[in-house]
Design a protein around this nucleic acid. Structure first.
Lengths: 205, 205
DNA sequence: TAGATTGTTAATCGATTAACAATC
DNA sequence: TAGATTGTTAATCGATTAACAATC
């Protein structure tokens, strides 16, 4: 699609910009500047202009950026001008919280299916979703055309389940298990581990 | 404490190394090399050696690193050779999941108190903890000497609650609210927003 | 001793910032 | 027109990698 390769570090900032812009829009603001947006998200104005200019000239000299238009552009760039179906693997506390979380729907994601390997949980419901057995996972994922999974199993199970997910055609994994996982090159992974984030802060305390 | 200023990007990798080393230790492994550790966490061997050498020579030529000793050293560096008391602000689904999460205790953190502003929740229990009113938050935090908070309130309440936390002496905030928050320079913040992480991946899909 | 692996230096690579012409 | 702000270039800054002497 895109001709130029964009550094991942820039890609990582775009969702932050998008989040701030949507908040401004909710406040009925119509335009913003690189300076204002920068103060909002804690990034220099120069960097924001440089980041955005990688994808085209979205702003107007003297005026700044139209919030609505920039939101639309960023959503297209990030491929969230569509809704992605998502699977939650593991129906423990985190899996529950994610499945019930209201914050996904207007940001491009909908949780469509939940799996667990615990017979006591299989068949139970979280909201509208019935917890499925991991035995049927591969088929169910392919059938539902799901390519994004949130992994909330234990550290010891994470790699095995990851391999199953990759075999089932998953292309993106948000990993909540407190362990690094190995995936083929065509699969992207992001990590969420609160202890790791906390430890990064206690260094400074 | 430390004489040399360590770049934050290096600090951010240390908890990843620590997590991997502990996993190796659990598997009864006694030594590792920068190469092996690097393959484990997806970082080059040269970078791991360089990162660790910022803090001293922990390894032995020809042999590698003693896992036990390196774990001890990293825990000291990250200040998790002690247990930090932590507050959870917001007793919704995420607050619940965090409070019940088993993964903190052996990584340097213990959740000691939970707050919410919803009268229907105040007084109810999560595990052993009784949900407290946010009205009493500042006093309770100071009294319990808590300097780390996990923020799980709504985006619209996040900044106001953040200001209260800063006033109450909080020095580190793990922010689950999907919004950027502003804090004074002496306060550190880390963000966990699953939508943001997901959007960073959909760019590549 | 031979093999392995560290710690460190120098070279490379990439990201951020400063500055300003262009222009709304 | 005057003021504001973009997009972009060049300069600076910082991070990563490659390579290897030191040494266990």
């Amino acid at each position: 699609m895109s001709t130029k390769l964009i550094p991942d570090i820039i890609v990582g900032r775009l969702p932050i910009y998008l989040r701030a812009l949507r908040y401004m829009k909710d406040k009925n603001q119509e335009t913003t500047s690189s300076q204002e947006l920068g103060e909002n998200v804690g990034i220099s104005a120069a960097q924001i202009r440089k980041d955005l200019s990688q994808f085209g000239g979205f702003g107007t000299q003297g005026t700044g950026y139209k919030i609505d238009a920039l939101i639309t552009n960023l959503m297209e760039i990030l491929n969230v001008d569509q809704v992605w179906n998502v699977a939650v693997i593991g129906a423990g506390d985190i899996g529950h919280a994610l499945t019930r979380y209201q914050g996904f729907s207007d940001r491009g994601f909908e949780i469509k299916i939940v799996f667990d390997n615990n017979p006591d949980l299989i068949g139970k419901k979280i909201g509208d979703l019935v917890i499925q057995s991991t035995d049927t996972m591969a088929n169910a994922l392919r059938k539902a055309n799901i390519v994004i999974a949130m992994l909330t199993v234990t550290a010891s199970a994470a790699q095995k389940v990851t391999d199953q997910l990759v075999d089932a055609g998953i292309k993106a994994i948000l990993n909540y298990a407190p362990i690094s996982i190995n995936v083929p090159e065509h699969v992207v992974v992001q990590y969420i581990d609160p202890s790791t984030h906390l430890q990064r802060m206690t260094y400074y305390l």
